[in-house]
Design a protein around this nucleic acid. Structure first.
Length: 557
RNA sequence: CGGGGUGUAGCGUAGCCCGGUUCAGCGCGCAUGGUUUGGGACCAUGAGGUCGGUGGUUCAAAUCCACUCACCCCGACCA
């Protein structure tokens, strides 16, 4: 490909309003262009990278026997209403009406559609198991798109779905996808970690996320460096820890805290650190009202609480309810004298001399102690993990890591087949619900992830497997044009994807562009170049040596 | 949806506070000609703008006011 007639427009200056490194580099290297917030055009060079990644994914999907199909992005509301996700997705889904007034949405994921296909076509165990996948454009009306293609409103995703007669079969295929994902991310040059995660709106019992650690990631995960325990923010458990063993219990004291409702303000007013405060949350769990105690410096993890209480919906109680059950106004609730069911995080069990609300306007208690002043019905792990918290599996510390979620595997079980009625007949002629798994990869996001992990001050350094071209021929001596032409045609004959910088530009510009767009090998043809002595330079190491073309071809291949 | 910020040529920006013949300017990029050619070259000439939009104030608005739209950042939210 001759650069003089190619569509590449690099930018010297930093794009304004762009924070994330990979986003800057993708814009500067002419890979993408923004059309609207969270909506990006893939320019020719960017599309080449996207296609390279897609093909690696295809190869690995096909290798484990998954079969490719293509589903529409548009789908009617009726399908989504079957699973209740028309409601559940809410404004995150692009929704509109067609000319006849029919409701449609742009699909953020395809469980409903794939289930619709399968319930229509599959009715016998003889056809099971099988897996289908697609690489397709998805839509999510993100409240706040950021980081360029890291969190976009329109993006490319690979989604796969597997269908099984039994859990064992589902587990087996889950393992195959798991291994395929490892190969995909390794081939694309990622360093990544695998964490246990929560299913979220997709659902499912066991899920794993594949995370590319990166400062600019949108996802938070925790890893124990001692035992290797790893989990996503929603899932990460926290170990029980004794923290207050040497402290004497002090006498309970009622103090005035006029108008102070927040942890921060009470804490500074009383000169007590936030971790000596207890937040008493009055919550509505399905139809019950419960009080949940959590340390002032912690946040309640609703997902953990839902599991513990085995309820579907948890919301904050309104101020009337709080007055009714605690006798005090919102902001001054506390466990002392409370007749509700009280559950608490383990950290409350370990601590002592807490500050708590007095269930009385403008008052808190100091030095409240468990057992003496208040009781708790039961203790659980209810808080979000934080950097440095105790590992749940060993005596190590959890380390917080930011990363980009590349892929996610879910064991769905019968969640969708039950609501959508996907049944099959087994060997005995008995009806069963089909068992499912689903497996996603954020394809377009992977480009950003790769760049986040592979760049230097000059620009992108693409790993060979995903580079838009295998090598770039930089012709900087007009007298050697013939030689450059010959080298390029030879490389092409050898099946090497070569970008030929034949532009009438200064050498500086050509070197700068080549470095910016990150093509792994640069063949520099200048004064010193001769037919059997060509300069090969590595983008990553910046090392260069003079070699005959045959040697160079071997290296690049 | 809250808080903060920004919209001037393809990109990056000056001017805005204090309205008016430095107010539409500069750099990059682009076009033409010439000189260059190992790290974003130089000279000359040139094309390119609804100053985000609408309405208002005024003799006069890029500049002041109101509304609105778009985009960015923080938060809320998040397969």
């Amino acid at each position: 490909m001759r650069l003089s007639s190619y569509f590449l427009h690099t930018l010297i200056e930093e794009p304004q309003d762009v924070e994330v490194t990979s986003h800057k580099l993708m814009l500067r290297a002419g890979l993408i262009k923004m059309l609207s917030s969270g909506i990006y055009i893939y320019l020719p060079l960017g599309l080449r990278v996207l296609r390279k990644i897609e093909n690696i994914i295809r190869e690995e999907m096909n290798r484990i026997g998954a079969i490719e199909l293509l589903m529409p992005a548009l789908s009617p509301s009726s399908l989504w209403e079957e699973t209740g996700r028309w409601e559940a997705y809410g404004d995150d889904m692009f929704k509109f009406k067609d000319r006849k007034g029919g409701k449609f949405g742009l699909a953020p994921t395809h469980e409903e559609v794939i289930c619709d296909i399968v319930r229509d076509k599959i009715s016998s165990y003889k056809k099971l198991p099988f897996s289908l996948y697609q690489i397709q454009t998805k839509f999510r009306d993100e409240p706040r798109p950021r980081g360029g293609v890291i969190r976009a409103r329109e993006f490319v995703m690979k989604d796969a779905y597997s269908f099984h007669q039994t859990d064992e079969s589902a587990n087996e295929v889950y393992g195959e996808f798991f291994e395929a994902y490892k190969r995909i991310f390794t081939r694309c040059g990622f360093s990544y970690i695998i964490v246990e995660a929560e299913g979220g709106i997709i659902g499912g019992s066991l899920t794993h996320e594949f995370i590319a650690p990166s400062e600019n990631g949108e996802d938070t995960v925790f890893v124990c460096e001692k035992c290797g325990y790893s989990a996503g923010l929603e899932k990460a458990e926290v170990g029980k820890e004794v923290q207050c063993s040497n402290e004497e219990e002090k006498p309970l004291e009622l103090v005035e805290t006029p108008g102070l409702k927040s942890v921060v303000r009470v804490s500074s007013f009383l000169s007590e650190p936030p971790n000596k405060l207890i937040k008493t949350l009055i919550l509505k769990a399905d139809s019950r009202i419960v009080a949940v105690l959590i340390r002032g410096d912690d946040e309640l993890n609703i997902t953990k609480l839902k599991k513990v209480l085995d309820v579907n919906e948890i919301s904050m109680a309104d101020s009337e309810t709080i007055e009714e059950v605690t006798g005090g106004p919102l902001g001054f609730s506390g466990p002392i004298g409370l007749s509700l069911k009280i559950i608490a995080d383990y950290s409350i069990e370990d601590g002592c001399n807490f500050v708590v609300g007095a269930n009385k306007e403008d008052h808190h208690y100091k030095n409240a102690n468990l057992g003496r002043d208040f009781n708790v019905d039961s203790f659980f792990d209810l808080r979000y993990a934080k950097d440095g918290y105790l590992c749940p599996k060993c005596d190590g510390r959890l380390k917080e890591i930011k990363g980009i979620e590349l892929g996610h595997c879910f064991k769905l079980g019968e969640k969708y087949s039950r609501v959508m009625g996907i049944k099959f007949l087994d060997e005995k002629g008995e009806k069963h619900y089909i068992v499912m798994g689903c497996y996603g990869i954020g394809v377009s996001r992977m480009i950003a992830g790769i760049i986040e992990q592979n760049y230097d001050k000059r620009g992108i350094i693409f790993p060979s497997a995903v580079a838009p071209f295998d090598c770039i021929v930089i012709s900087i001596d007009p007298e050697k044009k013939g030689l450059s032409d010959d080298v390029c045609s030879r490389l092409l004959q050898e099946g090497i994807d070569v970008l030929y910088d034949d532009r009438e530009e200064s050498p500086g510009k050509k070197f700068a562009d080549a470095d910016l767009i990150g093509i792994p090998w640069q063949i520099i043809i200048g004064k010193k170049a001769e037919k059997e002595k060509l300069e090969l330079s590595s983008r990553r190491t910046k090392e260069s040596k003079f070699l005959p073309l045959d040697e160079i071809i071997k290296i690049i291949k």
